[in-house]
Design a protein around this nucleic acid. Structure first.
Lengths: 152, 152
DNA sequence: TACTATCAAATTGCGCACAATCTAATTGTT
DNA sequence: AACAATTAGATTGTGCGCAATTTGATAGTA
């Protein structure tokens, strides 16, 4: 019956609700495909993204990597430790500032990235999005994120 | 230098990659707003969605709730236990099939939902999306998810 | 009836994400 | 030089999400 909800329509989740739910769902669907493509290479999606970032942008501190990925040390520290244990990245204390840790891809890390070079294309095909749709979606997502970050 | 990547363009993450990264980022930006709106009511976003679903669709088994939310018992069992401990949902073994557990919202759960009735509107405002853009985005997300689920 | 197969939910283990706290190094101020 | 404030990472605790396994109930079959 739910007789006591004055604002949202009865019988169906509101559209706004469905948008967020749909985004969560889509992200998890993407994750599942990434798991399939990356799993045999021993990488999770966050690890893959982190490896690509340090592979492209050279040695990065944990916080600057976190700036790229929008993740903090609470997430990155253990993730990077696992990737270091796997031999994919190197972590070195910055001699000029011993607080900093510089993260870079090892040769094995670059090799792994090269082996995964076709993943983006496969993802694109699986998503069924045209170039134009991807651009539109990307633009919308960026704008929404910016708007949400701006706060109330 | 990254001299060994033949397929993806040097110097920038590929668009496909950025799309997925952007979706992750946007979802987390939404989550942050939900945390802000729901936190004082003692709910996480997944709990909120679960409460809305059982509140609207009456008593549901764990697996049918999982069908709505696209989550399995590994996620839902502990989540529902916490919500039961908080007095928001009730879990009862189905007398007709003792394997099943029927989940429904308690009176307190319905009250909580009523108190959160304005959340969808606030989320919509914060996102800055027009009605038209929300419809487009929603349609795109549904299509992509369907496509990804279809498999290789 | 007994045996097997199937099904529902719970549990275990692992990794991600975030808040809060802690440690150590650096900077700033007096 | 001494001390407070700041900064970078790491750590701890909690919850979500998924794979794999386990437990218990039901259904199907010899």
């Amino acid at each position: 019956m739910s007789p006591s909800n004055p604002t949202s329509p009865a019988g169906a989740l509101s559209l706004e609700q469905q948008i967020c739910y749909a985004m969560h769902t889509t992200v998890r669907a993407f994750d599942a495909v990434y798991r399939e493509l990356l799993g045999e290479h021993g990488l999770s999606y966050p690890q893959y993204i982190a490896l690509m970032t340090v592979g492209e942008h050279g040695p990065l501190t944990v916080s600057s990597l976190g700036g790229h990925l929008r993740l903090d040390s609470g997430t990155l520290s253990p993730l990077l430790k696992r990737m270091e244990a796997a031999g994919l990245v190197e972590r070195v204390r910055d001699p000029e500032d011993e607080r900093r840790v510089l993260v870079s891809a090892t040769a094995a890390g670059h090799d792994r990235l090269a082996a995964l070079g076709d993943v983006p294309h496969q993802i694109a095909v699986r998503s069924g999005l045209s170039r134009r749709e991807m651009l539109d979606l990307h633009r919308t997502l960026r704008r929404v994120t910016e708007r949400l970050d701006a706060g109330a």
